[in-house]
Design a protein around this nucleic acid. Structure first.
Length: 586
RNA sequence: CGGAUAGUAGCGCAGAGGCUAGCGCACUUGCUUCGGGAGCAAGAUGUCGGAGGUUCAAGUCCUCUCUAUCCGACCA
């Protein structure tokens, strides 16, 4: 590619909306442009990188037996009604009607599509296992897109769907993906860690997320250095210390101006762990078949020294969504905000109790009366409810192995889910097994966000001068800068390299050397060849590597194509050396 | 969806009632320059986000609206 003909331009100053280094450089170097909130165009450089990422993904998906397909972005709403997600997913899904007034949606993932196809193609166990995948556009109308390419509304995703006879088959496909994803990220040079995760709207039980650790990430990851435990905070577990003493009887005491745990502890001169705090939420429950919604008040009771992890709470109470309760809703259930507890509340309230409360006793809790608390409340004796772990794991808490937990921020670039039969059963995707019986196909689904992948690479590989993407994903392999008058020589080298199949970005512009160098630094092609008067006279070209700009090499012009090819191979093998192999035990 | 901020040239910004809207970079042409964002000269570029209003006069004041960004709610 000749830079004199290139579509995009580089920017000296970043648009004011760029708030992370990687995103700023993607804009400045001309990889991406923004169209709207969470909506982006890929310019030639960005698209080339994206294509390279996609091809790495294709290679690895094909390697584990994946067959590439393409499903539609526009879906008839019917299949989404079959699984109930037409009703259970809120405004994040775009709904519209076509000219004949049929309900339509924009697919935000493709479990429904994949299942709808599979139920017609797979009739027998002889057809199983299967693995299909696609690289395709998704639309998710996120309430708040942010951070450049990290959280967007329209994005490209690789999604694969596995179909199996039995759980062993699913486990194998799941393990294949687990390892395959590590190879994909390693080939592209992106360091990731895998964490145990929540399956969210996908349903199913086992799931893992691939996280790129970064302070701009929106997920919190809890890790233990000693035993290797890693999990998204949404599901992370930790060791709680319990305190049990001889049971004492309830006692009502006056506690004016004690609406918070801190105030209460100060007044009574006790520790937070000696209290039970109440968190009021309203859960929405949606009927999968009819779409009817019902709201229920939920009181989460947790020991005062812990915080409620909303995600865990939502699971425990089996709600489709949660929101904080309004004061009047709390009062309507005979409880008092600031002085609330599950004791003597309206029986319709769903009571969720953290196991820390069950395993402790004589806790101070609200009396459901303005300015009064109760001493010595005990779960089981004074109130009952669903016991679950709903506590949020935090930095410094104790891992189950006894070591201290740490927390980090991360960006989710990939995920794998064991779906089981959720979709096959609701969508009637059955096969006839060897024993002649009809059984639901067992499914898994697996995603990689391609745009996020690019964004993470840009965060990982940059310096003050610009981007410095690994050779496997950089838009070009070689940047040829010509500073000499002898056009013929530059053209010859450009053609020789290109004819060898090397991706060359050739700066043939009538620009000053300074402009060419700064643009080269900014775009960050891994290998740079500079043709300058001094070295050319001696039959040499200067070569620099973007990941080490301070070192300068001289290559012979006669053998430059071969030398450059060797350098490319070296850079590539350095990347593959870093491949992490991790075993997954299920 | 709540709170805050901002929309003036491709990008970054100034102009805060006064008549012809500006600066830097980028862009065009010419000459010089040519190893780290060159110099000189000449030029082109704006429905001042949109609609309505106040006024002799509106980027500038008022009302509504749209859009974007950040914080939160939310989210794979």
């Amino acid at each position: 590619m000749r830079m004199s003909k290139m579509f995009s331009r580089t920017l000296r100053e970043a648009p004011s909306t760029a708030d992370s280094k990687g995103y700023e450089l993607l804009l400045r170097a001309g990889f991406v442009r923004q169209m709207g909130a969470g909506i982006f165009s890929l310019l030639p450089l960005g698209y080339r990188t994206t294509t390279k990422i996609e091809n790495i993904i294709r290679e690895e998906m094909d390697e584990i037996g994946g067959q590439e397909i393409l499903m539609p972005v526009v879906n008839p709403a019917d299949i989404w009604k079959e699984t109930g997600r037409y009703y259970s997913i809120d405004k994040e899904m775009c709904r519209f009607s076509d000219r004949a007034n049929r309900d339509m949606v924009l697919a935000m993932t493709h479990e429904e599509d994949a299942t709808a196809i599979a139920r017609n193609e797979i009739g027998s166990y002889k057809k199983l296992p299967q693995l299909i995948y696609q690289i395709q556009t998704k639309w998710r109308d996120d309430a708040r897109p942010r951070a450049g390419l990290i959280r967007v509304r329209e994005f490209t995703m690789k999604d694969s769907y596995s179909f199996d006879r039995n759980i062993e088959g699913l486990n194998e496909q799941y393990k294949n993906h687990y390892a395959s994803y590590f190879r994909i990220f390693s080939k592209a040079g992106l360091p990731v860690i895998v964490v145990g995760a929540d399956s969210g709207m996908m349903g199913g039980k086992i799931s893992h997320e691939y996280m790129y650790l970064s302070p701009i990430g929106e997920d919190t990851i809890i890790t233990c250095d000693k035993c290797g435990y890693t999990a998204n905070r949404q599901v992370a577990v930790f060791q709680k210390e319990y305190f049990k003493e001889e049971e004492k009887s309830l006692e009502k005491i006056k506690t004016p101006n004690c609406k918070t745990i801190e105030e209460l502890c100060t007044l009574l001169n006790i520790e937070k762990r000696q209290t039970a705090k109440a968190v009021f939420m309203v859960g929405t429950y949606i009927d999968d078949k009819t779409g009817e919604e019902e709201e229920k008040l939920i009181i989460a009771t947790i020991r005062g020294d812990f915080d409620v992890e909303e995600n865990k709470l939502q699971k425990a109470c089996k709600a489709n969504s949660l929101r904080p309760a309004h004061e009047d809703e709390i009062k309507a259930a005979k409880m008092v905000p600031g002085y609330g507890s599950a004791i003597n509340c309206d029986p319709k309230t769903i009571i969720i109790v953290d196991d820390s409360v069950k395993k402790s006793n004589n806790l101070v809790a609200g009396a459901n009366e303005e300015e009064y608390h109760l001493l010595n409340t005990n779960y089981g004796r004074d109130y009952k409810g669903i016991v679950a772990d709903i506590a949020s794991a935090k930095d410094g808490y104790t891992c189950q192995c006894g070591h201290k937990l740490k927390e980090n921020r991360g960006i989710e670039v990939g995920n794998i889910f064991q779906l089981g039969t959720k979709y096959s059963e609701s969508m009637n995707c059955f096969f006839t097994d060897e024993d002649g019986k009809n059984k639901p196909v067992i499914m898994g689904s697996y995603g990689i966000g391609v745009g996020r992948f690019l964004a993470c690479l840009a965060e990982e590989y940059n310096d003050e001068q610009g981007l410095s993407l690994p050779i496997s994903v950089a838009p070009y392999q070689v940047h040829l800068i010509s500073l000499i008058k002898d056009k013929e020589l530059s053209e010859k080298i450009y053609n020789d390299l290109t004819n060898k199949g090397i991706d060359v970005l050739y700066d043939d512009r009538k620009e000053s050397p300074g402009v060419k160098f700064t643009d080269a630094d900014l775009i960050g092609i891994p290998i740079r060849i500079t043709l300058g008067n001094r070295s050319v006279k001696e039959g040499k070209a200067e070569v620099k590597f973007r990941n080490n700009l301070s070192e300068n090499f001289l290559f012979n012009l006669d053998s430059i194509t071969e030398e450059i090819q060797k350098s490319i191979d070296n850079l590539k093998s350095e990347l593959t050396k870093k491949i992490i192999h991790k075993e997954l035990s299920l």
